[in-house]
């Protein structure tokens, strides 16, 4: 379970361009839920994700994952429970490293970084099997540099890397908005495949209403730091929000 309790955040406090984002936001997600988040620019969607992932610290309030307070846990330590995909496909992978080296880092997320060899036969077989699920032929390109892949391929790889170690929470910040329509569909399909039948909580920010209602089990709309709408189930098909 992911719980956000009484969250406060103001940027540039007591300065002329003070920007108040959250004033006591409360939000709760159950295991297995897939929540799409919509809302205008500056509403606080990305800030919410940054606070959950630990990139930004809140002024006040608490974040709990499965009952443990992670509000002030360093980012790299809470990352063990949280997978993340950014809007920019270039952000989630290391371009100078090969496909297998990138995947190895993701698969070893929860193992100590010891002096064992990173890539062996066993891990290599696992990679091929996981990569073939992407249907992009990447299983035959393990030794290619990731920098040579297309944006769509890199985003698919990022998604695989973010979820391969089975995090409790998956944060998707507009994962498809930099991609062409075909790659978008491919990524969305993958997201559905991964989140279905999983206890992982998925949060996805999107500006595409069709995506917001077609995917997931629940939709929330954030406006000026407040949850303005929170609906789940069949009601979602009928929403027509005014931004």
């Amino acid at each position: 379970m992911l719980k956000v309790e009484n969250l406060y955040k103001t940027f540039a406090k007591n300065k002329p361009d003070e920007k108040n984002i959250f004033n006591g936001l409360n939000f709760c997600a159950k295991a297995g839920e897939f929540i799409t988040i919509i809302g205008g620019n500056g509403a606080g969607k990305s800030t919410l994700m940054n606070i959950i992932s630990g990139q930004t610290l809140p002024d006040k309030g608490k974040i709990y994952v499965d009952g443990s307070d992670i509000t002030y846990t360093p980012q790299h330590r809470r990352a063990k429970a949280i997978g993340r995909v950014f809007q920019d496909p270039l952000k989630g992978t290391a371009p100078a490293l090969t496909v297998e080296e990138n995947l190895a880092m993701a698969m070893l997320k929860n193992s100590p970084k010891s002096l064992k060899f990173a890539i062996g036969q066993k891990i290599s077989d696992q990679m091929k099997q996981k990569l073939s699920c992407l249907n992009l032929g990447l299983q035959d390109r393990l030794k290619s540099k990731v920098g040579l892949l297309s944006g769509g391929q890199r985003q698919a790889l990022t998604l695989l890397m973010a979820t391969i170690a089975e995090p409790k929470v998956l944060l998707l910040d507009e994962p498809t908005s930099a991609l062409d329509p075909k790659s978008q569909d491919n990524i969305l399909e993958l997201i559905e495949k991964i989140s279905n039948n999983s206890t992982m909580i998925t949060l996805m920010i999107t500006h595409n209403m069709e995506h917001a209602t077609r995917l997931g089990t629940r939709t929330i709309m954030i406006n000026s730091g407040k949850i303005q709408m929170d609906i789940s189930g069949s009601q979602r098909k009928n929403i027509r929000p005014n931004f």
Partner: peptide, 21 residues
Amino acid sequence: TRLGLSIRATGDNEEMMRALG
């Protein structure tokens, strides 16, 4: 090795490595 590779990956994309714990 795992340690060595994580150094190379840190140099290549630090933000990714932080997101990977």
